[in-house]
Lab assay of single mutants.
Amino acid sequence: MTGIVKWFNADKGFGFITPDDGSKDVFVHFSAIQNDGYKSLDEGQKVSFTIESGAKGPAAGNVTSL
């Protein structure tokens, strides 16, 4: 699925993605970002991701920028 990064705190390594389908915002951890180098996201960035079952509920996985 796709969405827009609502916010991401690079110091803490997590944030939230707002899915394009209008569903509830999804937690994203830096370890789910699939790019080389520094793993961070920018507010407003368009991303593709999967929904994984995290310890505290749904979380984004396999996050790639579009």
Rank of each mutant, 00 (worst) to 15 (best):
M1E: 05
T2V: 09
T2W: 06
G3K: 00
G3C: 01
I4D: 03
I4M: 09
I4W: 13
I4V: 13
V5E: 00
V5H: 01
V5K: 00
K6M: 04
K6W: 04
K6H: 07
W7H: 04
F8H: 01
F8I: 03
N9E: 05
N9L: 08
N9G: 05
K12L: 11
G13I: 02
G13H: 04
G13Q: 03
F14V: 06
F14K: 02
F14S: 03
F14N: 02
G15K: 00
G15D: 00
G15S: 00
F16P: 00
F16W: 10
F16G: 02
T18Q: 11
T18D: 03
T18C: 11
P19V: 05
D20L: 09
D20V: 06
D20T: 08
D21M: 05
G22V: 03
G22A: 06
S23D: 08
K24D: 14
K24P: 14
K24F: 09
K24E: 13
D25N: 07
D25P: 07
D25L: 07
D25I: 06
D25W: 04
F27L: 04
F27Y: 10
V28F: 12
H29A: 04
F30T: 07
F30E: 07
S31Q: 06
S31H: 08
S31F: 05
A32Q: 10
A32M: 06
A32D: 06
A32T: 07
I33N: 03
I33C: 04
Q34Y: 08
Q34I: 15
D36P: 13
G37H: 10
G37L: 10
Y38G: 09
K39E: 05
D42R: 15
D42T: 13
E43Q: 15
G44C: 06
Q45Y: 05
Q45I: 08
Q45D: 12
Q45T: 13
K46S: 08
V47K: 00
V47A: 02
V47W: 01
S48W: 14
S48V: 10
S48H: 14
S48C: 12
S48E: 09
F49T: 00
F49H: 01
F49C: 02
F49D: 00
F49L: 04
T50Y: 09
I51L: 12
I51N: 04
E52I: 15
S53R: 08
S53V: 15
S53A: 13
G54H: 15
A55Y: 13
P58L: 12
A59D: 04
A59Q: 15
A60T: 03
A60K: 01
A60C: 05
A60L: 02
A60D: 01
N62Q: 11
N62R: 09
V63Y: 01
T64S: 13
T64N: 11
S65N: 10
L66G: 07
L66V: 11
L66H: 10
